[in-house]
């Protein structure tokens, strides 16, 4: 499977995702944001970081970069797109995913391992997980508080487009285990065709027992499935 990782000035999880993809036998290429042509890819990853120093709004400037038009075209023709952390913020700024990510409710940058529940395992991204499986993933963000209008929220719920929700160790979804104030504890969502996934937690940081755990591995093996 061929993957492309888009690199912006200020991206800082691009190497991590590249290492994870290569470990999982993806044929990966890094693509600088000023490129106007994308290499042929089955998966495009928009990595985490602080593209353009989070100027204006997180992801706003990256969302208007040259390569994004190519990403949009690829998305429309069914290519798989994964946006992690700042990548999720960029996807909402481009309009590929609806809603937006507000500042964390407690106004603090949060960097910790949290529990998330796989609320939909029927997708190209999550099919190797069990439904309602609880994962321990790292989050590291200042704007992860997902917000959208009621109509879109209903759509997300009715069409099962919420991929991950923050929960406690036992899988209970409640306010106390909502790290950033996100609507309905949302940690990741799909677009209506489910070829685009945006998520705040970092699966690429969870692919090796030596440094963390392997809860992120199945996201990549799902893609290969």
């Amino acid at each position: 499977m061929r993957s492309s990782v888009i690199v912006f000035p200020g991206s800082n999880c691009d190497r991590d995702i590249a290492v994870a993809l290569e470990k999982m036998q993806f044929k990966n290429q890094m693509v600088w944001h000023k490129e106007t042509k994308l290499p042929k890819s089955d998966l495009i990853v928009i990595p985490g970081g602080f593209s353009y120093g989070d100027y204006l709004r997180s992801g706003a400037i990256a969302g208007k970069s040259l390569i994004i038009n190519e990403v949009k075209n690829a998305a429309n023709s069914g290519c798989l797109i994964l946006g992690i952390c700042n990548g999720f913020q960029i996807l909402t700024e481009t309009g590929l995913l609806r809603g937006t990510l507000l500042r964390n409710k407690n106004l603090k940058f949060i960097n910790k391992d949290v529990y998330v529940k796989v609320t939909n395992n029927n997708s190209k991204f999550t099919n190797k997980y069990k439904k309602d499986q609880i994962l321990n993933l790292n989050i590291a963000h200042n704007e992860g508080n997902y917000f959208t209008d009621q109509k879109h929220l209903d759509e997300l719920k009715n069409n099962n487009l919420i991929a991950f929700r923050y929960c406690d160790e036992k899988g209970s979804i409640n306010d106390f285990y909502n790290p950033n104030g996100s609507l309905e504890n949302i940690a990741g969502i799909f677009n209506s065709k489910k070829n685009i996934l945006g998520m705040m937690p970092h699966p690429e940081r969870m692919v090796d027992e030596i440094i963390s755990n392997k809860d992120g591995v199945n996201l990549f093996s799902s893609l290969l499935n």
Binding site: K64, T100, L102, F147
Partner: peptide, 9 residues
């Protein structure tokens, strides 16, 4: 509309 403002919020 195109850049400065996020019309959702």
């Amino acid at each position: 509309r195109k850049l400065l403002v996020n019309l959702i919020i």
